[in-house]
Write a protein that binds this DNA or RNA. Sequence first.
DNA 1: AGCTACTCCTGGTAGC
DNA 2: TGCTACCAGGAGTAGC
Length: 278
Amino acid sequence: MPELPEVETTVRLLRPRLVGRVIRGARVLWERSLGGQRAADFASRVSGARIARAWRRAKFVVLDLERGGRSAGALLCHLRMTGRLYLRGESEGLEEYIRVRLPLDRGELVFLDVRKLGRLRHFEAPETVFAQLGPEPLEDSFDVESFRAALRARRGRLKSLLLDQSFVAGLGNIYVDEALHRARLHPLARADRLRRADVDRLHAAIRSTLLEAIEREGSSFDAFYRTPEGQPGSFQDQFQVYGRAGEPCRTCATPIRRIVVGQRGTHFCQRCQRRRTT
DNA sequence: AGCTACTCCTGGTAGC
DNA sequence: TGCTACCAGGAGTAGC
């Protein structure tokens, strides 16, 4: 499912083709993809606007808009489970699942989403959305000392906390499981009980897992996630635990366990990721 | 604060 | 073969 690496890949590939383009209108085929916004309202907000910048915040694709050189808010796209954003002609198939089309002065931006959980919305003041989000794990502001302090203040389980976008932004089910395995930490470990070395490993594991996944253009293990060019990512070949229940741990050969934590499938190695009870 | 449960969605798959 | 039941899951919300 699209998490930080998949969204980053989407942005990187779209950016050179989107920046400078002017949105000519909006064809909304599934209104609920707008997250409560009316199609006519949405269309009037974006029509005629120029895409000034394409970037990522957490799992949002952000397209900053301007009109006459002045800011005109931003389009925020959350791909959720099965969303895709691409330029018409650069991806094939699944056409019946297209939810929104944005004709541009050159080409057309397409939002496709099989399960309809994704959102494409316009915000006049997108910073109100960003204010709810935790630090970007790949930026300098996500330093190990503030991460340590934040963890010390929380009593929840690591798995749930790392999925909380207001705690750290951009991680989802896959990369949390992978990062915890890499850091050799149990998903049910309490955040405030981590030792200094545990936090150091977790901080490094989050970053290295995300960076390696971005290098491989994300993970594709079903028919859903593809880059805007229609290509699958390849980080799924590096999975140590996610989706490997019953298969041997690549480190110690112990069968990978699957449990449910906060309604989320959670994969880990009970030998590599011991739960300390002290 | 932190937990569970429910909602939104539908393709894929297990079971019969 | 064809049917049904259930699963996957990010995030918002409600309730305890």
